[in-house]
């Protein structure tokens, strides 16, 4: 009975090893590199849009 109540009060913690803020190579690849190219050409576009 005692063991039973002990077992029922035991809390099992399971750790999930994933974080929303973890920076992986895939994130850099998929976001930073295309963004760098977009950043490189965006001044030309903005400049011309301002003129128009």
């Amino acid at each position: 009975m005692k063991a039973e109540s002990q077992a029922s009060s035991t809390t099992i913690y399971s750790r999930v090893n994933v974080s929303m803020v973890s920076l992986k190579w895939g994130d850099i690849l998929s976001t930073l590199l295309p963004g760098a190219l977009a950043l490189l050409v965006s001044p030309h576009i903005f400049h011309c849009l301002m003129v128009i």
Binding site: T31, L32, A38
Partner: peptide, 14 residues
Amino acid sequence: ALLIAATLAGGVLE
């Protein structure tokens, strides 16, 4: 600052 700007621009593309 350029890295942050590139990341934000990439976020828009994403």
